[in-house]
């Protein structure tokens, strides 16, 4: 605070603090709190509603009996006695009807109950999709890492700085195109009647249903999120002193050993950041699976969350599903940091 004031002056520092706290509270804390709160309750029929409905049934029976009694009274010859009896039975009937109305109101007004049941809602089918999404995202991350590491290393260490700049620019340019368009491009390429299948057809291969089998989602995802892997890797590899690679070679290390003993240990923070970003984006992706499969393959978990919210309009279960995904993603971050022995400070760098 004092440092901010010293750097920007009091009014500007206050403004910065205001925006920062608005951002943290309004865009991070509040939505999460609301989401968690939503996931923890649901509307239920009131407690003992079964007994209430039994009682209502009983009261209706009583009502019928009273109505029968009343029609019997109407046959009474003495007018004064008849009127008196009718009055009594009308009062009794009105009281009964009032009681029934009250009970019915109680029975049909749901009450808000805090419960973990929303999480248990996930049946085995949904859970399978949840697992598939996690595993597939892990695979996308692994493929992206395998593809990007050699690229990032080659650009950072083998090229001159000018050439490296050009290559990185060439990598960025496709990303100026809207993500949806890029996915559509892949959708067209991998279509059952698309160019890839046409090409395979030339070699006598039967068309492969890339989109319908879910392979397409994979390919498009690796392509869509590859930059988020390349840049952290490139940035960290660029800071590696080339002399270290030469020193290792001079001391007799093979290329493989140079990478496992010198380059990869140095690149750990970049690998962690790249993997975390790619995993989070893949697991949370909605557009890629939606466009690539158009409902023809098993959905991604994000599509289920969407359905809970906007098609089943069950926000509580939707929130519970979303929270489950969030927990897994957060867990992934910690596992990666633990695995690569990277601290938050390294990642921030």
């Amino acid at each position: 605070m004092t440092r901010l004031t010293r750097a920007f002056g009091r009014p500007l520092a206050l403004l910065i603090l205001l925006f920062a706290s608005l951002w943290i509270l309004g865009l991070i804390a509040a939505p999460q709190v609301i989401m968690i709160e939503q996931s923890l309750w649901r509307m239920e029929r009131p407690e003992g509603s079964a007994e209430i409905s039994v009682r209502i049934d009983g009261l209706y029976n009583q009502l019928d009996v009273l109505a029968l009694d009343r029609s019997a009274v109407e046959a009474e010859a003495d007018a004064s006695i008849r009127a008196q009896k009718l009055d009594t039975s009308d009062v009794a009937l009105a009281a009964l009807e009032a009681e029934i109305a009250g009970l019915e109101a109680t029975e049909s007004t749901p009450v808000k109950v805090y419960t973990l049941a929303n999480f248990a809602q996930m049946g085995s089918a949904h859970f399978a999709i949840f697992l598939k999404t996690i595993v597939a995202s892990l695979a996308v991350t692994a493929i992206a890492l395998a593809v990007c590491y050699p690229i990032a290393f080659a650009v950072a260490k083998l090229e001159t700085p000018q050439r490296a700049g050009m290559i990185m620019l060439a990598l960025v340019i496709p990303y100026a195109i809207n993500e949806l368009l890029r996915i559509f491009a892949w959708q067209m390429i991998l279509n059952y009647n698309g160019p890839v299948n046409a090409l395979l057809g030339l070699f006598g291969v039967e068309p492969i249903p890339f989109l319908e089998s879910g392979t397409g989602v994979f390919v498009a995802m690796v392509y869509a999120y590859i930059l988020f892997m390349v840049f952290p890797l490139y940035n960290v590899l660029e800071t590696l002193d080339s002399n270290q690679i030469e020193a290792a070679r001079d001391l007799g290390a093979s290329s493989w050993r140079i990478h496992t003993r010198v380059v990869i240990p140095h690149a750990r923070p970049g690998i962690a950041v790249g993997c975390i970003m790619t995993f989070m984006l893949s697991a949370g992706s909605y557009a890629v699976p939606y466009i690539m499969t158009r409902g023809t393959a098993a959905p991604w978990f994000t599509q289920l969350i969407y359905n809970r919210f906007f098609e089943a309009t069950n926000w509580n279960v939707g929130a519970a599903y979303a929270l489950s995904l969030l927990v897994i993603c957060t867990l992934f971050i910690f596992v990666m940091m633990r695995l690569l022995k990277v601290s938050l400070k390294d990642i921030a760098k």
Binding site: D241, N243, Q244, E246, A247, A248, D250, L251, R261, V262
Partner: peptide, 11 residues
């Protein structure tokens, strides 16, 4: 041969 680098290049 073994080389000692100007910046030593210790790991």
């Amino acid at each position: 041969t073994a080389l000692i680098f100007q910046n030593l290049a210790l790991f």
